[in-house]
Amino acid sequence: MPETKTDWLTKFFSHLELERRLSPQTVINYRRDLRRVCAFCEARHIQHWPQLDIHQVRALVAQLHREGLHGRSIARLLSSLRSLFRYLLREEQVTHNPAEGVSAPKVKRSLPKVLDADQVNRLLEIKAKDPLSIRDRAIMELMYSSGLRLSELAGLDLNDIDYADALVRVTGKGAKTRVLPVGRLAIKALKDWLGRRDGLAKADEQALFVSRNGTRLSGRGIEQRMQQWGLKQGLDVRVHPHRLRHSFASHLLESSGDLRAVQELLGHADIGTTQIYTHLDFQHLAKVYDAAHPRAKRKRP
């Protein structure tokens, strides 16, 4: 009996986890995307992957667009489907990739929202006395200092920080490791946290940041605490880990102008991803120009 779509999906997810070593969250995203594809196939009585062709993939995209799925989500689904068929091609189960050449509806690329330098200073001016506040300040200082992703920050172990040379070793997307500098204030905040960590952490816990239960602090826990601190410190915008990472990149690019260096620090594989921050910088300059240049000011009607 020929193997079903589900059989090959099971093998594909094992391939993602064991061969490609993708993060659990990335595999979850693949599962969600391909469940949508499977539902579409069931409705069209498509029982095996070789039966899916480019016309049906285009019909799937059109259907999802009509249902209101965001263009970015459709683009990610197409990427998941292409990856599946590249795997099936490797396994000689199909002869073509029906998702190649199919694109998602275009969406306007939104600029990342950042905190300005004053907002960052206000956020980090925490008069921390209890262990959890000291931990939270160290988390935010480190994220802003080194531009870490949330998953990278949550995954840090004790031995990932080199205090002598002020460096942090992180494992990013695709299990790629990079070593990043850590600022003076972040190192001080981390040392303050280490002085309190043992009072919370379980004896065999290797995580750098732990919860009140003594186990590794989750990404969701970090998000919640950061949002709470934004409110406590009186910021009028929502504070979350990605916003601190975006702020790190934007402020560094404003000061240095070195796009390649920012790309390396952020761990972007494609410099096109990093170039979004040049648009932020230009947007700021344009506002200054419009406000200050005598020929730019518009006369009121």
Rank of each mutant, 00 (worst) to 15 (best):
Asp236Lys: 07
Ala117Gln: 15
Gly267Gln: 01
Ala154Trp: 09
Gly68Phe: 10
Asn213Cys: 06
Ile187Asp: 05
Val170Ala: 12
Arg216Thr: 06
Asn159Tyr: 09
Val262Leu: 03
His96Gln: 03
Asp7Ala: 12
Ala207Ser: 09
Ile74Cys: 07
Met1Cys: 04
His55Asn: 14
Ser14Gly: 13
Ile54Gly: 10
Gly68Met: 06
Arg36Trp: 08
Glu223Lys: 07
Asp7Gly: 10
His96Tyr: 02
Phe248Lys: 11
Arg31Glu: 04
Val237Trp: 08
Pro105Phe: 09
Ser133Cys: 02
Gly195Arg: 13
Arg245Ile: 10
Thr6Gln: 14
Leu208Ser: 03
Arg76Trp: 12
Ala59Trp: 05
Pro181Thr: 05
Ser151Arg: 10
Glu223Phe: 02
Leu52Ile: 14
Thr177Met: 11
Ala166Pro: 03
Gln93Asn: 00
Ser110His: 11
Asp7Ser: 14
Gly234Glu: 10
Thr274Ser: 00
Val262Ser: 08
Leu64Gly: 04
Ala186Gly: 02
Leu89Glu: 11
Ser23Thr: 12
Arg245Tyr: 08
Arg178Ser: 05
Tyr144Phe: 15
Leu180Thr: 03
Lys5Met: 15
Asp258Val: 12
His48Pro: 05
His246Cys: 08
Ser211Leu: 01
Leu217Thr: 01
Ala39Tyr: 05
Ala249Asp: 00
Lys127Val: 14
Val179Asn: 07
Val94Glu: 01
Arg220Asp: 07
Trp193Leu: 02
Phe209Pro: 03
Asp136Met: 02
Ser218Cys: 01
Gln56Thr: 04
Ala186Tyr: 08
Leu200Ala: 01
Arg58Glu: 13
Gln119Ser: 04
Cys41Phe: 00
Leu16Pro: 09
Thr273Arg: 07
Phe282His: 13
Arg260Met: 11
Leu280Tyr: 05
Asp33Lys: 04
Ser79Ala: 15
His48Leu: 14
Arg21Val: 08
His55Pro: 10
Leu252Val: 00
Val102Pro: 03
Asp236Arg: 13
Arg44Glu: 14
Arg36Phe: 07
Pro112Ala: 06
Pro131His: 04
Leu280Arg: 08
Leu52Pro: 03
Val107Gly: 10
His246Gly: 02
Gly230His: 03
Ser151Lys: 14
Arg122Trp: 04
Val120Gly: 00
Ala286Leu: 13
Phe85Pro: 01
His293Tyr: 07
Leu34Asn: 11
Phe85Val: 07
Val168Ala: 13
His70Gly: 05
Gln227Arg: 15
Pro301Cys: 06
Pro181Phe: 05
Leu280Trp: 07
Thr273Gly: 08
Arg197Ile: 00
Arg243Pro: 01
Asp7Trp: 13
Phe13Gln: 08
Leu259Cys: 01
Glu205Met: 02
Val94Lys: 01
Leu148Asp: 03
Ser133Tyr: 05
Ser23Cys: 07
Leu190Thr: 11
Val239Asp: 05
Ala59Ile: 09
Gly68Gln: 06
Arg32Thr: 02
Arg109Leu: 11
Gln206Ala: 09
Lys232Asp: 10
Ala99Glu: 06
Met143Leu: 05
Gly174Val: 13
Asp33Val: 00
Arg243Tyr: 08
Ala39Ser: 15
His251Ile: 00
Arg197Ala: 02
Ala138Asp: 00
